[in-house]
Computed example of a mutant assay.
Amino acid sequence: MDFLLIAIIIILLFVVARQHLSIRKTNSELHQMRDKLADIIEEETAEKVLLQTNHQPIQQMLIQINRLLSYNQKVAADYSRTKESLRKMLSNMSHDLKTPLTVILGYVEKLNHHEKMSVEEQSEVLESLHEKTLSVIDLMNQFFDLVKLESGDVELSISRLSINEICRKNVLEYYHLLQSKGLHVEVEIPEQNYYILGNENALNRILSNLISNAIRYGSDGGVFGLTIRKEGENIAVDIWDRGKGIAEAHLDHVFERLYTLDDARNPQFQGSGLGLSITKRLTEAMNGAIRLRSTPYEKTVFTCLFKRLTF
């Protein structure tokens, strides 16, 4: 009996010692995790907590901690991008409002301090003042339209639309402007009607923005094109030109609100940086997608994709 009791005591001591070592190892691993987490938080790095362990619960905890770190790092990156985007937006908005408002103030002062102006001169100044005022109102309306689209306050009524007819109508509306710019027009619209679910006003605005954008920035290529084609289960509308195009560095940014290329600040172009943002939001609001590819002086193509209806 004494031998059996001693054996039991030895086994129990062994078990206790092993548990003690396991607890010490677990505590050591937890302390390492704590210290690493503290370093990551304090130094705001994009590191992960890496630890070699055979302890299953700690392995699972590490997986969840690293998932949380990845999520927090993504949130921080998104916040940083949003903050930078907001800074640029306010800077651009300030520029785009300050310039025409300064011109408007100049016209007003001219009218106030030039009593000897002829009726004809006054009429010219008033016409210019009217045009500049309308441009400011248009810019503000675009800005508020974009804010409403991004906040989800705009509900589009959706119906069955013939994309062929809407594209024909929009090209015809710009045809005289295209001719006045000396542009060769290449339109490929199939005889067979293709139908999508969309909002006609929104689709008109999308096409208008893209066509006017091609005219404004692509006229030096001498060609304007619009093509409707099938792409898998979708209908693709390509609006293209052969102008100076968009450098690769800008391709990922052109749909950002108030993002403009350097030459868009040239009064000759008068770009606000809002048209393409609105175009993207409207396209997505109709469950569509928009993409861009550009090879300068070869072809710049904006493609709108919509789900094709088969009924």
Results as ranks from 00 to 15, higher is better:
83 K>L: 12
8 I>A: 14
130 H>C: 09
266 N>Q: 14
47 E>H: 04
67 R>T: 05
116 K>C: 03
270 Q>W: 01
258 L>F: 04
257 R>E: 10
37 L>V: 03
192 Q>F: 05
203 L>D: 09
35 D>Q: 11
117 M>C: 02
257 R>P: 12
42 E>Y: 06
309 L>K: 06
42 E>N: 09
102 T>I: 03
113 H>P: 00
266 N>V: 02
110 K>C: 06
145 D>C: 05
31 H>T: 08
100 P>F: 04
290 I>C: 05
127 E>D: 08
142 Q>H: 06
240 W>C: 03
273 G>D: 09
256 E>N: 15
134 L>F: 05
18 R>C: 10
96 D>V: 00
246 I>W: 00
53 T>V: 05
243 G>C: 07
164 N>W: 14
134 L>P: 05
42 E>S: 11
140 M>R: 05
285 A>G: 12
103 V>C: 02
245 G>C: 03
99 T>R: 01
61 M>Q: 10
71 Y>F: 10
260 T>S: 14
240 W>Y: 15
287 N>H: 11
85 S>N: 12
36 K>D: 12
177 L>C: 09
248 E>W: 02
66 N>G: 07
176 H>V: 14
218 G>Y: 01
99 T>N: 01
172 L>E: 15
234 N>S: 10
117 M>Q: 12
299 K>R: 15
28 S>I: 02
86 L>I: 09
36 K>C: 10
189 I>C: 10
166 I>H: 07
61 M>T: 12
235 I>N: 12
199 N>D: 11
12 L>I: 13
74 K>G: 01
67 R>S: 13
102 T>Q: 12
217 Y>I: 00
204 N>I: 02
219 S>Q: 13
277 S>E: 06
55 H>S: 08
193 N>T: 11
188 E>R: 08
97 L>D: 02
301 V>K: 01
42 E>A: 12
128 S>I: 00
9 I>D: 05
219 S>N: 06
33 M>N: 05
42 E>Q: 04
50 L>K: 14
145 D>A: 14
211 I>Q: 10
50 L>E: 15
280 K>M: 13
135 S>V: 08
301 V>I: 13
79 Y>P: 00
237 V>Y: 07
278 I>S: 02
251 L>M: 15
115 E>K: 08
1 M>G: 09
158 I>G: 06
304 C>D: 11
71 Y>C: 04
287 N>C: 03
132 K>M: 08
110 K>L: 13
287 N>G: 01
38 A>T: 10
308 R>G: 03
141 N>L: 08
131 E>F: 10
